[in-house]
Amino acid sequence: MKKVVVTGGSGMLGHWVVRHFVEQGYEVLNVDTRRPEETLCPTLIADLENLGETYSVLAGADAVVHLAAIPAMNIRTPDVTFRNNVMSTYNVLEAAAGLGIRKAAIASSESSYGIVFAEHRIMPQYVPLDEDHPQLPQDSYGLSKIVNEKTAEMFHRRTGMQVVSLRLGNVIPPDWYERFPSFIHKPEERERILWSYIDTRDAASACRLAIEADGLDAIALNIAADDSSMAIRSRELMAERYPDVTNFRAPLEDYETLFSNERAKRLLGWQPQYQWRNEVGRIEE
């Protein structure tokens, strides 16, 4: 049985990632600054900005999934957000490299493209937005994710460690689907995330596949559902909220995602299983 350390396993996404790895037969250690609400595996409380503590919690692991972070802007001050996210990621990868761990997956974000938290509104240069789209953040959170991706590349060059940076869309746990009817006809409420979302269970499977895959080097992959989070067709969404964007790189005839997940499907063999229309239907039943 392989041992996986999940940092941030007490968080909203982390809980589902821990659950998924446990269900798949892995030995799992959760590392966080607080205990989880539900005990699924052992938990260690640690400060990942402390390199010595980070070495200790990763000892004996075969792989690490690093989710621990300040997860958005305006939770802590910009400098604290940047320092925490960058230093914890550096320390996790430094300790993994020193301990001979060969596989890591880290949580990056759609925010790295700069649209989400932009003080001066910007628009995508093309859609569906893929991993080659310029990353142009105006905020410390988005910048921290770019730095982390570059840190991953550095460790791969130095050690050969495989590090997959998962650019996650808006993460949705199963009990949040009841909120969807309140915004699915209001495109202005979610335009900054290009109406993307990803079920926590699908994000969890992407984390597992990222450490099970071989030969990926250091790579960033968008992780999103196949459809948008809206009850309005994707071309209509773009026409209403981003009318100046004319570079369409897919037909967009229905409710397709505008945050491309094709590369993750191809390289990980990943396929999202959950769509909000089905989940809302289950709640209503």
Rank of each mutant, 00 (worst) to 15 (best):
L40P: 03
F180E: 06
E285K: 13
G25A: 10
R190W: 10
I184D: 04
D227Y: 10
D244N: 13
D199L: 05
A210L: 10
E178L: 13
V163A: 11
Y141V: 05
F82W: 14
E149Q: 07
A107E: 04
L221V: 10
R233E: 14
G281F: 11
L143V: 13
D139H: 03
I184A: 04
N74C: 11
R263K: 15
L237Y: 02
V5M: 05
K186E: 12
V22I: 11
K265L: 10
F155L: 04
A97E: 09
I122G: 06
E262I: 02
F155S: 01
D244Q: 15
F183L: 06
Q125R: 13
E94I: 04
T81A: 13
L267D: 05
E110F: 11
V6C: 05
E38Q: 15
E119A: 13
R208M: 15
Y177W: 15
S108Q: 06
A96C: 10
N30F: 03
G14P: 00
L168R: 00
Y274D: 09
N170Q: 11
K103I: 03
V57D: 03
N84V: 15
E178Q: 12
I70Q: 11
D175V: 09
P137M: 07
A152V: 05
G169L: 03
A231K: 04
S228F: 04
G114Y: 00
L58G: 07
E279I: 05
I184V: 15
T200L: 02
N278V: 13
R179G: 13
G11A: 04
A69W: 01
E94R: 08
I232S: 09
V171P: 00
E119T: 14
R179L: 15
H133C: 11
T89G: 08
G215E: 12
I232R: 08
L67E: 06
V147I: 14
S88E: 09
I211S: 02
R167K: 10
V31I: 14
Y242R: 05
N170S: 12
S229T: 14
A105S: 11
M1L: 11
W270A: 05
M12V: 09
L136I: 12
G52P: 03
A210W: 00
F259C: 03
N74K: 14
P42W: 07
Q273S: 14
R157T: 10
N247Y: 09
G60S: 13
S229W: 02
E119L: 10
K265A: 09
S109P: 02
E178M: 11
L48F: 03
I283A: 12
S229F: 04
I232Q: 08
M230V: 05
E253Y: 00
I172E: 05
G269P: 03
E27Y: 06
A72R: 08
R19A: 12
I106F: 07
E27M: 10
P173M: 10
F82Q: 10
G60E: 13
D130L: 03
N84R: 13
I193W: 00
V164R: 00
I70N: 11
E253P: 00
N30K: 08
K3N: 13
E178K: 14
E178G: 12
L13T: 00
W176Y: 15
Q271P: 04
E236H: 08
S260Q: 02
E188H: 07
P174Q: 07
I172R: 02
E262V: 01
A206L: 06
P42F: 08
